[in-house]
Design a binder for these strands. Structure first.
Lengths: 338, 338
DNA sequence: GTGAAAGCGCTAACAT
DNA sequence: ATGTTAGCGCTTTCAC
């Protein structure tokens, strides 16, 4: 640890701690001569301010926590990057906590059993229910991401999942597709994300005058591409016919692409595929993947806007912000009917 | 912020701060009656220890910094996860810093202009030279990852890149491949990683009695799959013949796969492909990707072993640890000659 | 414009 | 086994 302290510098320079502090903080009203002398002492001693001590004195940590399910899921790692960069632009450091979609870990985030570690928390819950969230009384500012739990009492940022799903279906319908699979519902999954997307899917079909067919809504056992590939192949084997797939996630789309290929179906000619999240995966697939694109940078900046207001003492009830989304068109569901 | 302090609890419970502290820390020698009374006071007041204050008093932060080039590169996000999980197992929190392979940012990591934020640093440099690293005098323990800069003075963990590249080539040779492309050298890239891998590639060829052909070593303008795809197609167009590709990175392999497909070559029948890092990408590609697999969990635990020793005061000169690697065989370069 | 001193909330050595 | 007290290094009124 750094053994040279503010007072050491002060003594060497023959000034008070206050003056050294002023120099460190680049305060305006310091006599140039003093400033030079102090700076010389700092350099000579190699003084580095102790952040922990500063924090204790000021009560601000300059750090925010980002709690996400998995750091190595493409969507979350890309989102983390956006948030980390935006935070750093605003002078904060980010500490990332992985919940692994675990109920206990999510509660731990909410609980914040220890205070004074971060000034605020950005949390993307998966398991936690709105009611539980609402009940938790915290003293560290909190902003929620995603749509898993939306208590009215807490600030919250998301894209309009219903509208986005609708846009995805509309794009497919514009391509002339009529039999559109939704992939998929995850067995035992209690998140509302899928529900919202499924709702938008249905709305768009109704809007287009396409009859709803429950058979077209596929269920998969888990979140892996392998399961999606298997589900698609099983559906085809069972005689289901379709000409498009709307996936709730790019990883699902990767699985769909694999399954369709194994089944000998051409994408996008026979079946068009739309993914979700517009992660880097979209350009790694064959064909490249059209995907619903949440504006991650806006998500990050909006979340930080809300959080900073809270950290400054804003006390109002929960604000809910919708962030724009778009659809990035690539080969798997091109702009011109394929 | 938490306004209830240790002393508030002590007063309410009618005991000293020490006793409260003992209860908080689950010390053994506390009279059961007192423990109950204190716990009741803690619960009633909703007391949460202030970590910053504890840190200032103990001098330990319980946090380590992980500095990597990009948080959303598959290899680094997976490695981050391993390190975060291992660190959490050992009672540390991790704060992730992105350098974006920027020289200035890398220097900032080394500089540690502010002390007392973390107990130690794990750093994967890209730009920084060994000499610069060696010259920096730091007071926070440091462990280096990767092979970009290997000063003798600093602890360091990596896989044997030369041996790993050799293993990759041997695998291809065992499949009967003789014309093996190395993909690739990145123009303007000054990292030594590629150099090591290229060396192992050459060694294995010599060992197998296969003549070296400089034409087979491809150069790409940057790290994107698109560039790799283009480079492969250009090579084919120029008349280069080959039956295998060893890639320095899974993302390169994704590009190679795309390029080969566009050129109408079948993988693995006509050309076998081996990637590097064994990231999740390997199962997303078509065909799935055989890849050199650094043992990321061992990388993480070894780095933390070394770091913890340093944090405990170990003073010796730099230790250099090699971590095992293997090759995960998938479709793109199967075990049985394809 | 600069100095002196009182905390920030906790830990740990020392005392009882 | 429990209480007392002196710091940890910095910031920040308040005087000068």
């Amino acid at each position: 640890m750094a053994r040279v302290r503010l007072i050491d510098v002060a003594e060497l320079a023959g000034v008070s701690m206050k003056t050294v502090s002023n120099v460190v903080h680049n305060y305006v009203h310091v006599a140039p001569a003093l400033r030079q002398k102090v700076q010389a002492a700092i350099d000579e001693l190699g003084y580095k301010p102790n952040l922990t001590a500063r924090r204790l004195a000021t009560g601000k940590t300059g750090m925010i926590a980002l709690a996400i399910p998995e750091i190595d899921h493409p969507y979350f790692s890309e989102l983390s990057r956006c948030i980390a960069e935006e935070a750093s632009r605003r002078g904060y450091r980010v500490i990332i906590e992985q919940t692994l979609s675990d109920t206990v870990a999510e509660h731990a985030v909410l609980q914040d059993r220890e205070a004074g570690l971060v000034d605020g928390v950005i949390f993307h819950p998966v398991r936690m229910q709105a009611l539980e969230l609402a009940r938790s009384q915290r003293d560290t500012p909190l902003v929620l991401l995603g749509e898993a739990a939306v208590p009215v009492t807490t600030d919250h940022v998301m894209i309009d999942n219903v509208a986005a799903a609708r846009d995805g279906v509309r794009h497919l319908v514009a391509l002339g597709r009529q039999r559109i699979v939704f992939l998929g519902i995850v067995a035992d999954d209690i998140t509302v994300t899928t529900t919202r997307r499924l709702l938008g899917y249905q709305e768009a079909l109704v809007e287009a005058g396409i009859p709803l067919d429950p058979e077209l809504v596929l269920t998969v056992p888990d979140f892996t591409p392998e399961s999606c590939s298997a589900a698609i192949q099983a559906a085809i084997a069972s005689g289901l016919t379709f000409d498009a797939v709307l996936c709730r996630d790019d990883k699902f789309a990767v699985g769909a692409l694999q399954g369709l290929h194994r089944a000998g179906l051409d994408v996008p000619r026979e079946v068009a595929v739309v993914g979700w999240d517009d992660t880097a995966l979209t350009s790694f697939t064959r064909p490249t993947l059209t995907s619903i694109a949440p504006d991650k940078a806006r998500l990050a900046s909006t979340a930080l806007d809300l959080l900073e207001e809270r950290m400054r003492g804003h006390q109002g009830s929960g604000r809910h912000r919708l962030v724009p989304h778009s659809i990035t068109v690539r080969e798997s569901a091109p702009a011109i009917p394929g």
